[in-house]
Amino acid sequence: MSQTQNEAVISELLAGCIVDLLADYGVDASPVVPPVSPSEMVSVVGFTSGEMRGNLAIAATYDFFESTNVISAQPTEEQVRDWAGELSNQLLGRIKNRLLAYDLVLAMGTPMVITGLRMDVGKRRTGIAERQAYLSSKGSIEAWFEATVESGFVLEKNESAVDLSQSEGDLLFF
């Protein structure tokens, strides 16, 4: 039961966060059944806490990260790699902030961007293994979330903590 519930929470959070994040950058993405286009660039960020540890990755073609780049219409390869890393960083940050409502505080690593041909993720046998794919006018993108969860830990929403995190883009003045 706890495994099913944890997977359901992560699945919902991942789906909501990636669609909203891409929308913030002007990319309307719709879910499709994975796998989609073979990935040429993957950005991976690790995370850890007492209860859950694992990795989040986003994977797409080079063209996807090039065409969605926010700083140049003709970015250099270095700019494309940095953008892929930043996008995965912001996606995990967004999920992390939503998980505060479940009394889970993750510590994040820094992104690692890998390039190659036809990159894919293997099927995980234990823990959470969420794989989602999205189509947009800029191409397709996949998100992979894998985690090991401490035995007995269940992601349950703490209603009193729901509004703890600040919304993306909002400015909080002290």
Binding site: S165, D170, L171, F173, F174
Partner: peptide, 22 residues
Amino acid sequence: TEGQPALIQRAKAAGAKGWIVK
């Protein structure tokens, strides 16, 4: 990307004037 209240409070105590989540 952080929105953790404990970090926001720590930044405020350190003298930050504001906080924006990317």
